[in-house]
Structure formats: C-alpha cells, structure tokens
Design a protein around this nucleic acid. Structure first.
Lengths: 210, 210
DNA sequence: TTAAAAATCCCTATTTCAGGTGATTTACAA
DNA sequence: TTGTAAATCACCTGAAATAGGGATTTTTAA
C-alpha cells in the first residue's frame, strides 16, 4: 500500500446506480479515494497505469471482458494490485476462478452492501476479505475425506504416482524394493476399482484421498 | 447446529489460564455453553460422544496427540462437528494441515483473544472464521502465476500429464494426433528444463502453472 | 493368536516414453 | 512483408515403465 492516509481505488461495475453508490460511500465515509470508476474492463485497463490503483473493486458480469479475465489482465500490468470481487455469484466455479486469477477477496452482493469498506480495510491490513459462505467454500476445498479405503502407505504411494514418479523413483523415495511398490499399486487399483494410473489419480483426487 | 438457543462447545487447551478464561468468557458473555474442557486430546476424545459438542475450540500444541490429529480423530466420531483452531502458529504448513484435517476455522492467538465469540457465531452461521493473515495465506494458495513460459495448449497438455494420462489419451481428449502431443511435450520439457514427466509436473506445480 | 498390512521376489507381454530430425499451416507482429 | 511463434503431423529407435499373474515372509495390530 502506498499511502497511510488512504488508498487509491477504482471500481468496475456496469450497474451505474451501484457504481455511484459505492463511489459516494467510499469517498464520503472513508479516507480512501475512488480515483476512477468504469462500466467495463476494457476502459479500466486502458487507464490502469494512470489510475495506479491500490485496490480494484470488480464485478464479474460485465459487458465485454468479464471481471475474472479483467483481474488477470490488470495483474499483468500491476502485479501487486489487490482486486476485490463484488458479485452475486457464489457458485464454486466462479469463486475459485476468481481466486486463481489473483483476487484478494470475494464479497457476495447478497449481504449488506456496506461491507465493502471493511473489505477494503482488511485488504489494506494484509488480509483477504471473504463473505462467510465464500470462506466456507474455500476452507472446505481443503478438507480431506476422513474415510479412506487406502492404507497410509498406499496413500503415500498414490501421492507419488500423482506426482508423476515412476515405480522405481517411488521405491527409492520410500526406501523399499520396486516390487513392493508394484504390490501396493495393485492393491490401490483393486480398492479404487481402476486399472491404470490416470484413473487412480482421477479417483484419488475426486475422493480427496490425495 | 442443534439448537437455536446456544451451542455446545468443548475446549482443548493445555494452558489452564487460557482455557479457564475462554470458558468463563463464553459462558458469561454468550448464550453458548462450554460443556467441558480438556488439557489434551485423548481425554477430550474419550468423552466426545457424551459431550456431543457442536464446536470444538482446539489448540495445536498439546501434550500427547496434537490438535490437528485430534481434529481428524474427532471428525471420525462426529463427522459434522466444527473445529476452530486457536493457536500461535501461523506457518503455512500448520494452517493447511489443519484445514485438510477438517478445521472449520483458524484463529491466531496473536490478536485479541476475544475474537473467539465472533468465530463461534460465524461458524454457527455457516461461515469459516479466519484471522486476516490466515485468510490471506489461504487465498494466495489458489493464485496462479500470471507469467507462464508455456502456451495455453502446452499448459493444457501439462494438466493432462499431471492427471496421469498417456500421450494417446491426451491426443484423444484434444482431438489431435499423438505426434502432436509428443511435440508439445518436447517443447514443455525444453521450456521447463526437465526431461521426464515427474520433473515437469513437479516444476509445473511449484510454479503454479497447473 | 489370528488377520491384515507391509515388504519381498519372479515372470511376461505390451505399452509408453524420450530423443532425434524433420515438415506444414496459421497467425500475429515488427 | 518478412520473420517468429504456435500448433499441427511424421518417422525412427532403444530403453524404460507398466499391468497382470502368482508367491512368500515379516511386522503389526486387534
């Protein structure tokens, strides 16, 4: 963040009423400044270097380039810029696409609009603001299933398979004989009801075994 | 959550002063109840079914079984129980281990102790409470590097390689000839300076190309 | 004291992989 | 317009990896 006295913010939101409401709200009730606001990504990207925002408030549904692509492009130009997605979408795919694209936060519009100031301050403090339901989705994406049909050794082997290691590599890593690994793999295939590596990895990922 | 009138909470924390402080605080200043508190996981697990907590407040550093293992075990017995980790550790490894083990939230002790009530309420509301720095770590774990040496086609191929697909499978999936895939893979190996699948996957994961 | 898991070994046929050395077409930018 | 990068396809070779079959021993946990 550049100044302690307030951050430079731009807004990309095609709903003009919402855009103006955010602008007024931030300018009046915080020490941050909305230096510019746009109704599409293309225009925002054109002025990005001049605006040099600290934070971008980004909608997802936009005419032309969508907000997620917009974040990617913006971060190519300003790699340290923080983007906060503000949208109605709370489906898994959109959320994770946005985070992969480099979003620092994700707020759903469903709740109180005025959480944006909290979000801005949280980003400024080095955090990652998220609506409760979004945080839940994110946290759950890490969760492993507690019930696994595989033994810990087999899981270990499957992990290494998924890393592309050969049986010989795995044997060396685990300090056992190659034939032992082959035996484990036979058991893994049996338990997962598959008969090749690709299917084993797929099933392992899908069931969060790895 | 079982009752609207308040949740059943257990605390596992070996520092008795902290444990008592939490207990008093929750019992006095919220409508939730601390039904039991323990200084180690083993004792907590023994009484888990009788306590049938909605939420477990869990420390990480504990004598005997650590808190992360404790969460895993607890969730085997009560699969829907919510665990909130409250600890001084904010290193990447501990955080992700806890989330993988099934923690619903992760609060660092460094900040204001009294955030726990907010955290409990957030879990009750279906959220996932996290300290700002933790949320940041979690969000950043999704972020892809914007600069990739690979073309989009090569990235696509590397993805499928990482899924354990054979060249022939990949060719079929992408509707091109096997030789095309081989050609892509040669280019991937050249760009990533590797000469086998395992190394390519490793480098791809490390650099968040996949 | 059993049963399950882990580790070891052998055999075989097939598939896959990596490296080399090419070519063609399209598309975009200097 | 002239390159360059990307994506496509081709042929060859030898080595490595794989899947499936069967079997035995040791360790560990119930």
């Amino acid at each position: 963040m550049k100044k302690e006295t307030g951050l430079r913010i731009i807004i990309v939101e095609d709903n003009i009423v919402v855009k103006e409401a955010f602008t007024v709200y931030i300018n009046d009730l915080s020490n941050h400044s909305v230096v510019n606001s746009y109704t599409n990504c293309e225009d925002a990207l054109k002025n990005l270097l001049e605006d040099h925002p600290d934070i971008i408030l980004m909608d997802v549904d936009l005419p032309g380039m969508n907000g997620i692509q917009g974040i990617k492009e913006a971060r190519k130009v300003l790699p340290t810029v923080n983007a906060i997605v503000i949208t109605v979408h709370d489906n898994t795919e959109t959320v994770f696409e946005a985070l992969c694209a480099g979003a620092s936060g994700y707020i759903t519009k469903t709740s109180n609009h005025f959480k944006i100031l909290d979000a801005i301050n949280e980003v400024a403090a080095g955090g990652a603001p998220m609506s409760g339901n979004i945080a839940k989705m994110v946290v759950e994406s890490f969760r492993k299933t507690t019930e696994s049909p595989l033994t810990s050794r087999e899981t270990e082997v499957l992990h290494l398979i998924a890393k592309g290691k050969s049986y010989k590599d795995i044997a060396d890593i685990l300090f056992v004989h190659v034939e032992t690994i082959k035996s484990h793999i036979k058991n893994i295939y049996f338990k997962l009801e598959v008969n090749n590596k690709a299917a084993a990895i797929e099933k392992g990922l899908k069931n969060k075994l790895i």
